[in-house]
Structure formats: structure tokens, C-alpha cells
Design a protein around this nucleic acid. Structure first.
Lengths: 242, 242
DNA sequence: TTGACCATGGTCAGTACGACCATAAAGGGA
DNA sequence: TCCCTTTATGGTCGTACTGACCATGGTCAA
């Protein structure tokens, strides 16, 4: 039988309208307090009551998975302006027993937020909060795997795309940008070499005219940059091979 | 509400069991007769009757999307030995109106076959056949976009993975391997340079002991190689930037 | 025998990258 | 006030990699 068309052949009718629930799961990442952090919600009901889980929810009949993800993220974080936010579809998890109650097919997304607010914790979630990626206990369902896939995908995309600027506020220093790479990859980078690579890539970043950051920071004030127009990095900025 | 858990909140019950059909769509690619070819089926019923479409079908209640894709591919091609076949999950297409009859959420996969057989064309498909990627008319549903995404993904993965060997028979020459790259990317590559890169990458290919291809081919017989143990290419084999 | 054709080996200059060193500009503490 | 630490920025230098070539070797067909 064909995926999205054709008459339903003999023997398939009883399956075609099997109640598959379709949901979205969100791996919302940010770089805060020098660490990679994840937005998690505490489950209030069985199964996995009291465990932490990725935020998410059902896809409504008249919206796409992307729209559902954006709606759930807005409800969870309380952010109203999610335009321009990077939402990356990871993959779809469809193992029959991933939810013990019923058949749930979940489309997973990764979202990157700069300088995020404290989450509301509303809805049916007992609590919602940011937690450091490296200090997580086991999550509910298969969310450990989803989160690991999100981390791997984001780490890989940093190499050949301008994604890192999505972790930064609209104006940022090269030190902050480097910090994003170091935090996601878990490695230290040479500052002058990083600088040379970034500035040599056309369209990655562009300087803010006549501005320099002064307050607060120790050391020499750094120049401010904005995200450039480029989407891909040529050549890529590869992770250390070690 | 949570994606895969928690009680269904007020107002959501009527949506949770909305009959979302979940299907798989397959972009099956091969390199044949010097061109990139795609496995397509002709639709026999409305909508899009008579148009070509990607093979695929419903996910059954007790199987994952990956298992459904493998099953559909076996049914379509008649191949019994699909172990070791590379099946790459592309993404999920969930726009509400992508199928005019009902709400269908489709998980798309890309599959790579070396030297494939003629397809059966059985099932409910009127016909099934290989067609050159560059000479396709508009496909049914959103399959044009799925196929374009598959092409882009495969092209990108050739750069930093050993995926190209999946297009080749178990033993192949470096000329055949280069032909895969040239066909998928649509560019010509310098033969000595390609050779140098591939042989310098540990684990990409390994020579078949004491064998050389003689028959049939014009010119000097080429050495035979097998796929090596590596999965990723370090450093990557980048497309020409032009 | 000759030439077309393909596989294979090698050269060479430009470039990119990693590992450094050096300088500039700010704040903090003695 | 004078260091000293901290961070940003600029530069060097040798190695490795890449792209553009040229050259040779082996096989088949005309």
C-alpha cells in the first residue's frame, strides 16, 4: 500500500485508523552559568511519576508538528516572541512500547535559546526548570536517548552551520561565541585560532558599528558582533579530533 | 501537557485519539547507468491517479517506523536480504493538508541500494520502476520535497561519512566509488586527488587481497576494495565550493 | 602497431590549521 | 601608585591538506 495515497488494500482497514497518538518532544538547550542546560518538567502522574521529562505535547488536528512544537515551547517558557527561534527537527521515535499506556509516535525537536527566562511550570507539569546537562539522572520514557541525539545533532551542526549564534543574544562578543562551542563540545579551543577562523568565514558574524563592551567584564573590553547572513560554514569549523 | 506521558488534561481528550494515520515514505536511491535513479510507483487511485509517487505504507500497530520502512522496501523490490542495508530517517512531514483525504503524518526514509533488481510492481501500485532523478515530472503529494530533502541529505552525508560504499557492491573499484560521488553531487572530481583522499582515510576502504578486475572494462584493470570499518570520515571529503 | 581509455603514481604551489608568542586594555589588590 | 591578573587582539611559523597539474603503465579495439 502506498504511504499517503491509494485505496486501502484488503486486510489493512483495521490498521489504518488505529489510534496512533502523535506528539512532539522538545529538547530545549541553552548555555547558562558556563554550562549546557536543558529545560525539563517534572511528571505528576504515572507512569514515571516524579521523574523529569522533556516538555512536549499532542499535535492538534489542524497544526503541523513544527507548529505544535512552537506552541508547546511558548506555553512552557512563557516567551511570546519565538519568531526567528531555531527549531530543528531531530527525528521521530516510534518504537511500539515507548509509552506503556498506548501507541505514541513522537516527533522530536531541538530548540536553542539565548539567555532564557525561568520557566513557568504551568500546565499539568508539577515543576519546570533548567538543569545542567551533565548532572541529569535518568529521564522518563526514552527521553534520555532523545536528549543524547539532540546533543549530538547540535554538536555536529555547530561544525558546518552558523547555529552557534542562536545560543547568543543579538549582539555578542567572540568570547561568548567561543564559549558556546566549548560548552556544547566539552572541549577547550585556542582563542586566537578560533577568532581567525570565525572572522575568515564570510557572513558568519559582522561587527556592530562603533561599539565595544565595557561594563562588568574583567580584562580588555571586547568588540560586539551580530549574526551575519550566512547559513552554512565553508570551510567547516571541525571539532578537535582527539 | 506532556508529550508522552501524564494524564490527558481537560479539553484535550477529544484530540488525543484523533485518528492520525502514520505512514512511511521511502526515497530509494541507486546509481545505475551513470545516473542517480529513484524507485517510484504509479498511483492507481485518486487523488493523483496516474502520477508517480514514492513507495511507502502504513505503520502497523506493533512495528516501529524503521521496521515498516524495511518491510515496505522488501515488498516493493522483492529483495529478501535487506540486512546491512542503510536506512536513513530523513524527517517527518506533518502538514495538515498534505493528504487531501485525511490527516496523515509520514516518516520519510532514504535508502541506498547497489545494483538493484527490477521492482515487482505488485501490491496496489499500478507500476513500479526506476527513473532518473533528473528527468522527473511532478510527483504526488509532497513527494517532490521529500525526494529533494533525501537528495540533499545523502549529498551532505557523503562528505563526512562512509555512506558512499552503500551504493557500491561488496567489492568495488575506486573508479566506481568516485562515480557515486560524482553522480550524487553532479560534479566532476579529479581522479588522482580523489584516490589520494580515500586511501589516506583510515578505515574508509581496504584492498581485497590479491585481486584485480580484468574482464569487460576498458583500460588498465583496477584494484578491488571493500568497505572498511570506519563510519565517519576524518577529515571530511568536501564538495567543490563553486 | 597504434591510439583511446582508464588506473595509478608523482610534483608543486597555495592555503588552512594547530601551537605558539606578543601586545593592548581594563580592573583589583597591596 | 604600581604590579598582577584577566581578557581581547594581533602576529609568526612549520606542518598538513588541497587542487591543479604532468607522467607512466596496462588493456582493448580498430
Amino acid at each position: 500500500m502506498r504511504a499517503s495515497g491509494g485505496a486501502v488494500p484488503e486486510g489493512y482497514d483495521k490498521y489504518a485508523f488505529e489510534p496512533f497518538a502523535v506528539t512532539v518532544d522538545l529538547a530545549v538547550l541553552t548555555v547558562r552559568a558556563g554550562a549546557l542546560q536543558v529545560l525539563l518538567v517534572e511528571r505528576g502522574a504515572e507512569p514515571y511519576a516524579g521523574r523529569w521529562a522533556l516538555p512536549g505535547g499532542f499535535v492538534l488536528p489542524r497544526e503541523s508538528a513544527e507548529e505544535a512544537a512552537r506552541r508547546e515551547l511558548a506555553e512552557e517558557t512563557g516567551l511570546s516572541d519565538l519568531t526567528g527561534l531555531h527549531l530543528e527537527q531531530l527525528r521521530t521515535y516510534s518504537e511500539p512500547d515507548r509509552d506503556p499506556r498506548m501507541r505514541v509516535v513522537s516527533v522530536a525537536f531541538a530548540a536553542l535559546l539565548p539567555d532564557p527566562p525561568e520557566p513557568h511550570g504551568g500546565g499539568d507539569a508539577a515543576r519546570a526548570m533548567w538543569q545542567p546537562y551533565d548532572e541529569l539522572g535518568p529521564l522518563a520514557f526514552d527521553h534520555d536517548r532523545i536528549l543524547a541525539d539532540a546533543h549530538e545533532r547540535v554538536g555536529a551542526k555547530l561544525e558546518y552551520s552558523c547555529l552557534a549564534t542562536s545560543f547568543c543574544p543579538p549582539e555578542f562578543t567572540l568570547g561568548e561565541l567561543q564559549h558556546v562551542y566549548e560548552t556544547v563540545w566539552g572541549t577547550a579551543l585556542d582563542r586566537p585560532n578560533f577568532r581567525r577562523k570565525v572572522l575568515a568565514t564570510p557572513g558568519f558574524v559582522e561587527p556592530v558599528p562603533g561599539a565595544a563592551r565595557l561594563t562588568g567584564g574583567r580584562g580588555k573590553p571586547a568588540a560586539l558582533y551580530r549574526a551575519g547572513g550566512a547559513k552554512a560554514l565553508h570551510p567547516p569549523l571541525l571539532r578537535p579530533t582527539s
